[in-house]
Every structure is written in structure tokens, then in C-alpha cells.
Write a protein that binds this DNA or RNA. Structure first.
Length: 404
RNA sequence: GUGGGUGUAGCUCAGUCGGUUAGAGCGCCAGAUUGUGGCUCUGGAGGUCGCCGGUUCGAUUCCGGUCAUCCACCCCA
């Protein structure tokens, strides 16, 4: 038997309903915030991700589905969505056009990781990217949008926020942190010693207790923000408080992707295991320039659809549409015609086989149809159809032509 | 990439200290006086016991490998 590749899943009933519901809900809310739908290719030049996500990240370093195509090009399946949208933004010269541009997208992402709860090799994200707005109010607005989406889906969460600083203050801080870490490195675990060179900020949230003891006095970004970064961050947290968002300042929150600056945020759920991040995002003011465009401030987020699927509470679905069947085979052509008329406005299930009334009712019940309509011996002679409302149990006999 | 758990009917699982026809519940199909669903009862269909190899007279059961899956580390949405 040929089966789906490791870490790749089919989405079928009943989960497909939740997948669709999440997309529908998120898309509707994004539109209300002025975002429009865009789609970018699943396959991009590898260099795009190396430059944007960052060569030092695990995503680029060891998790990409990368290969050389038949034309000799180094390509890979997108591991995330932002890079492609930024490439699209630049390639279509929207950076030169100026003004504000807000886009949303959704679709599969690919990372060659070891699968576990909430982590697949092909997974789906819904994301938004806002270009051209430098104000921290936009960061706030985008967090509100994520909040609206989760509230609409009935999902509980906690919000973690942090400021990662900007090109002015971050490198200064990083230097200070590295020299601090080098002084205590003999006390740190192997992983942390390696991280000093690759990703020093990650050392801060090491789970090793010995490491944590020695990190007690480590410098934090929050104490080293420049004036603008600090005032933006203060503005943001005040707005969140004023709007009663359940946020927590996590000075150790870092983003896995290199392109973030200033605001970083994450929505986490305590109900889905170790992979608790259900949405993450932040500001990335340098990325457009970094990929060859005109410097353009930007902020965005992405949410993980599979992780959210475990949490959504679907609204109760009511019985809907028609079930059509026959007890007399000769009535089938006329019943199918009626079915086609009904389908202009209703969901219709047609059963081709002759069955007992009991079997038809059972089938209609199982399909969740509101009405069960059947032609038997008595109806056939009158050119009629028997219709039962499965909810009110009301029964009627109609002329077959009257149906639809 | 590392560590641990699990693979027996469509689903959830039991079981065989190695030995004739491998079980349950749920689901499915059919009936329970002629044309009335969701409840109940009866009957039925459905399994190469993940795959490959080893040990053995004999393996679904023991051993090895492999694949898949789950959970955690790591990483991240």
C-alpha cells in the first residue's frame, strides 16, 4: 500500500469542516482589517529563504525541502510564508509605488522536522503582512486582529510580547550578552556554549537548571532598548492593557526567524502539548530592504492551522438540505430531475438504489438531511413525492413537479 | 538529529506463559407482521495479529531489523 509521506496528512471529514471554518473565519476578519488575499508559489529560489529567514536558523540550516530542479536551479518548498510575500511585494514594485499594502494568505508550508503533536512536515498557515506602516499602532492593530480571530473561534490563549530592538540597539545588546556569556561559559551546557556563537539570545531560555542559575544576572534586551524602541514598546503594552488583552511581557521571547525587529509576539495555548505556539509574528522593518527593495516598514503574523484545529469549537450544525430516494425504480429518472432543480438552492443527496422506507429514513438521518423525500408505489401512481421533515417529523405529499 | 511508548476487525482495545476455528464494545448490513430515522433485541459480514528475517516440529505471541505512528528533547506556527 502506498501511503502519504511521513509528517504529511490528508484532511478529511470530520476535520475538514474545522479546517474550512478556521480559514473562513480568519479570512473574513482579515478582510475587515483591510487585507486582501494573495497567493505566492510554493516553490521558491533557495536564496530567498537563506537571506530572509537566516542561514543560522534551524529552518534554513536543516529543515528545508531543498533540491536542484531540472534546469539546475537551487529551489525549495517554502518553510514559511513571509519571505514569498515580501518577494512578491518587491518584484511587483509595490515598494516603489509607496502607500500601504496589506495582504493575507494561507496554504501549505514544508519543514523537514521530526513529527510530533502539533508538528507536521507539511502544515498549513494563515498569515497577514502589512507593508508601509511604521507606527507601533499597526503592531497593536495586528495583535487585535489575531485576538479577534481566536475569539471568534472560541479559543483561549495567552499573549507573550517582547521588543527585539532595532539595528541601533540590538547589536550593542548582543555584544554585551555575548561577552557576559563567554565569561560564564564553563558553567553552561553544551547546547548553550554552541548557541553563544550561533544564537546567543536563545541561551536565555535554556531549560537546563544549572544554566538558568548562572543566567540570573544576564543582561536582557528590555534594559538595553534605544529611546524609540523603548517608547514604542511602552505604547504597545499600554494599548494592550487598555484593551484588556491578557498579555505577558516575556523578555526572553525571541523569534526563530532572523528578520524580526522591535515588536515580537506569540499567542500560546496551554492545551495542545509542547508545541504551544498557535500564532506568532512581529515587526520586520529591515526585510524588504534586505531582499533588494526600497526600505519599507512591515509587520505581520502567521497562525498554525493544524494546531488551532485541535482547539476550535465548531458551531452546532443544523440539519440541512434534502435526501431523495425511491422505493419504485421506475420513479428514479423523475426524482433525479427534481434533485437537479433542488440543487440550484439546496444541498441534495440522491440515492439510486431501491430501498425500504426505513432504510431511506435511516440514510437521510445519517447524512444530516433536513428533508427525506421518497417516491413509492402510492406516490408513483399520483406522480407525487412523499416528503418528511426530519426535525419536526411533519409529513406531506407533493406533486413531483412542485419540488424545487 | 536524540530518547521513550505503540503497531491485533472500519474505530477503541482485549488476548494467546509459542500449539486446532483470534475475541469484545462501537460502527456497518439485514430482520423484529406489509411504507416511518435517532432507542432496544436478534442475526450477519469483516482480520495474511504493520512488514521482512531469525529461533522452533510449530510464531500473531520469543529475538533482530525495518517501516509507520505517538510523546518528549530540539525547533517552531
Amino acid at each position: 500500500m502506498i501511503q502519504a509521506l511521513r509528517g504529511m496528512k490528508d484532511i478529511l471529514p470530520p476535520d475538514n469542516a474545522r479546517y474550512e471554518y478556521i480559514l473562513r473565519t480568519a479570512s473574513a476578519i482579515a478582510k475587515r482589517y483591510g487585507y486582501t488575499y494573495v497567493e505566492t508559489p510554493l516553490l521558491e529560489e533557495t536564496a530567498l529563504f537563506k537571506r530572509s529567514v537566516g542561514e543560522s536558523s534551524d529552518i534554513v540550516g536543516k529543515e528545508m525541502y531543498q533540491f536542484i530542479d531540472k534546469g539546475g536551479h537551487d529551489v525549495c518548498l517554502r518553510p514559511e510564508g513571509t519571505a514569498g510575500v515580501v518577494r512578491m511585494f518587491i518584484q511587483n514594485k509595490l515598494d516603489k509605488k509607496g502607500g500601504l499594502h496589506r495582504f493575507f494568505y494561507h496554504g501549505p508550508m514544508f519543514r523537514y522536522e521530526r513529527p510530533q503533536k502539533g508538528r507536521l512536515r507539511q502544515f498549513h498557515q494563515f498569515g497577514c503582512e502589512s507593508f508601509g506602516e511604521a507606527s507601533v499602532y499597526e503592531d497593536f492593530t495586528i495583535i487585535m486582529m489575531v485576538k479577534d480571530i481566536f475569539d471568534a473561534l472560541g479559543i483561549g490563549y495567552e499573549i507573550l510580547v517582547n521588543s527585539l530592538g532595532c539595528p541601533e540597539c540590538m547589536p550593542r545588546y548582543r555584544e554585551e550578552l555575548v561577552s557576559y556569556l563567554q565569561n560564564i561559559q564553563e558553567n553552561l551546557c553544551d547546547d548553550c556554549r554552541r548557541r553563544i556563537a550561533t544564537n546567543p539570545i536563545r541561551v536565555l531560555d535554556c531549560k537546563n537548571e544549572t544554566c538558568q542559575r548562572h543566567l540570573a544576572d544576564a543582561p536582557l534586551m528590555s534594559g538595553h532598548l534605544c529611546e524609540t524602541c523603548q517608547s514604542d514598546f511602552t505604547t504597545l503594552t499600554r494599548l494592550l492593557t487598555a484593551n484588556r488583552l491578557p498579555f505577558r511581557h516575556d523578555p526572553k521571547l525571541v523569534r526563530g526567524l532572523d528578520y524580526y525587529t522591535r515588536t515580537a509576539f506569540e499567542f500560546v495555548s496551554s492545551e495542545i502539548g509542547a508545541q504551544s505556539a498557535i500564532a506568532g509574528g512581529g515587526r520586520y522593518n529591515r526585510l524588504v530592504e534586505f531582499l533588494g527593495g526600497k526600505p519599507t516598514p512591515a509587520v505581520g503574523f502567521a497562525l498554525g492551522i493544524e494546531r488551532i484545529m485541535e482547539l476550535v469549537k465548531m458551531p452546532e450544525s443544523a440539519r440541512e438540505g434534502y435526501y431523495l430516494g425511491v422505493m419504485e425504480p421506475s420513479a428514479l429518472p423523475a426524482v433525479l430531475q427534481a434533485g437537479h432543480r433542488l440543487r440550484q438552492n439546496h444541498t441534495v443527496h440522491t440515492e439510486y438504489a431501491k430501498k425500504s422506507l426505513k432504510a431511506h429514513l435511516k440514510a437521510a438521518d445519517r447524512l444530516g438531511a433536513r428533508y427525506c423525500a421518497v417516491v413509492g408505489e402510492e406516490e408513483l401512481s399520483q406522480n407525487a413525492i412523499w416528503v418528511k421533515d426530519m426535525e419536526t417529523k411533519e409529513e406531506r405529499r407533493l406533486a413531483l413537479d412542485a419540488l424545487g
